[in-house]
């Protein structure tokens, strides 16, 4: 188990070192804006904020309300494309 977690840490380290994580983040952000994910979540945020009141809303509130919905709303095509890129990275660098 410790070996497994060690491996995960190593690969995450590698992702950051190579700059691939930043690239993936940028791609994901662009795709999510393009497919309307961001607008949907913003609308959801509006509801949450109206409910809680403009003055009392905190980042924690937003995170707990928005994150589950955010996960669910990511389109399959975007997921698939990102996974493809991650797999390609793993295949390239885990075999070194």
């Amino acid at each position: 188990m410790s070996k497994d977690s060690q491996m995960r840490a190593a690969i995450n380290q590698k992702l950051i070192e190579m700059g691939e994580r930043e690239r993936l983040k940028e791609v994901l952000r662009a795709k999510l804006v393009e497919c309307g994910w961001k607008d949907q979540l913003k609308a959801h945020c509006k509801d949450v904020i109206r409910e809680k009141g403009l003055e009392h809303v905190t980042v924690e509130d937003l995170v707990t309300e928005v994150t589950p919905k955010g996960r669910a709303l990511v389109p399959d095509s975007v997921k698939k494309e990102l996974l493809q890129r991650i797999r390609a990275f793993l295949a390239q660098h885990a075999t070194l």
Partner: peptide
């Protein structure tokens, strides 16, 4: 299977990052 699991974890990490970014953005705007 482990590689696949790893890929899924990385993806969910990234999605969570995006959500967090949006939350900060909205919170600041509010």
């Amino acid at each position: 299977s482990k590689l696949e699991g790893l890929a899924q974890d990385i993806l969910s990490d990234l999605v969570e990052d995006a959500c967090l970014g949006l939350c900060f953005e909205v919170h600041r705007a509010v």
